[in-house]
């Protein structure tokens, strides 16, 4: 086989693989949007209606409880995780800690990243049992935050590393402290940092395993941080197992809401990143 056949063959393979992935993605999204969108558009109020007393059996009312649960669990978790992740990533930079230390931490982060979320769920459950607490929104937040942390840290770390060293040199050269320089580096890497936080959020809002037995899997409206709650992915799981056709159809509507939320957020982050990319030193564009 000569070099040119080889390269054509590889080209075909690459294109085939890309086409397959895109096709599957488009299929998943369009089926969800088509089936979910239909259910949702037929009665959009299900999103803002609290569940009836026999919701899981007969589908009376809507699933506002899961929508709120998702917001109240993933929102705070993302904020907590983002603060921790950005701080860690800054600390991992070479001017804060040694190369060996940051290599070691990065290895742990990779392991954490690869850990199935159900393991975090079980871990937090173990803690709940050990301290004799009840599953609640609060522990859902904890579990999701633990799950998001390595994802956000790795993304932020990569983003900070890709910021030109000359930003650091210039900032230190003006008499900035390490902290002031870290802020400037984070700013220079802002599009990447935002992308990392959004990735963490998207993963968090879509995850069922972490909240499955930490947040309480409640079928009622959430009443407070130490009360049981549920999130959309857990709800979808429960709905899809239902014997009632209407409840099952709600699973599509809930999936639709999830996908729209994630797509919307990615869009917003793109716009934000685009705005900050104008400021990126060296004219890097995201």
């Amino acid at each position: 086989m000569d070099r040119y056949t080889e390269q054509r063959l590889f080209g075909l393979l690459a294109r085939g693989a890309a086409a397959l992935v895109v096709a599957v993605m488009v299929l998943v999204i369009s089926v969800t949007i088509y089936r979910g969108g239909r259910v949702f558009l037929m009665d959009p109020t299900i999103v803002i209606t609290p569940p009836g007393s026999r919701y899981m059996l007969e589908g009376d009312g809507g699933f506002l409880h899961a929508v709120l649960g998702s917001i109240f669990i993933v929102g705070p978790a993302t904020i907590i995780s983002a603060v921790l992740a950005v701080s860690t990533a800054i600390y991992l930079q070479s001017d804060y800690s040694s190369e060996r230390f940051s290599d070691t931490v990065n290895m742990f982060l990779n392991v954490l990243w690869g850990t199935p979320p159900i393991v975090y769920g079980v871990f937090v459950l173990t803690v709940i049992i050990a301290i004799g607490a009840r599953t609640s929104m609060f522990f859902g937040i904890v579990a999701i935050a633990i799950f998001q942390y390595p994802i956000m840290t790795r993304y932020t770390d990569e983003a900070l590393r890709s910021a030109p060293d000359s930003v650091k040199e210039a900032t230190y050269g003006l008499g900035a402290t390490r902290f002031e320089t870290a802020l400037m580096t984070a700013r220079a890497a802002l599009p990447g940092v935002i992308a990392g936080i959004v990735m963490g959020f998207a993963r968090g809002i879509g995850d069922a395993a972490t909240v499955l037995f930490t947040a309480g899997r409640s079928t009622n409206m959430p009443a407070g941080p130490f009360d049981g709650a549920t999130t959309l992915p857990v709800l979808i799981f429960d709905q899809a197992m239902s014997f009632n056709a209407e409840v099952r159809s709600h699973a599509y509507a809930a999936s639709f809401i999830l996908i729209i939320a994630v797509l919307g957020l990615i869009l917003v982050s793109k716009l934000l990143a685009g705005r900050y990319a104008r400021y990126a030193p060296g004219g890097r564009h995201s």
Binding site: V167, A170, G175, P281
Partner: peptide, 13 residues
């Protein structure tokens, strides 16, 4: 003061 080799605008106005 120090001016680095690569012309670098800080990510500011």
């Amino acid at each position: 003061g120090y001016v680095p080799q690569t012309p670098t605008a800080l990510p500011l106005s």
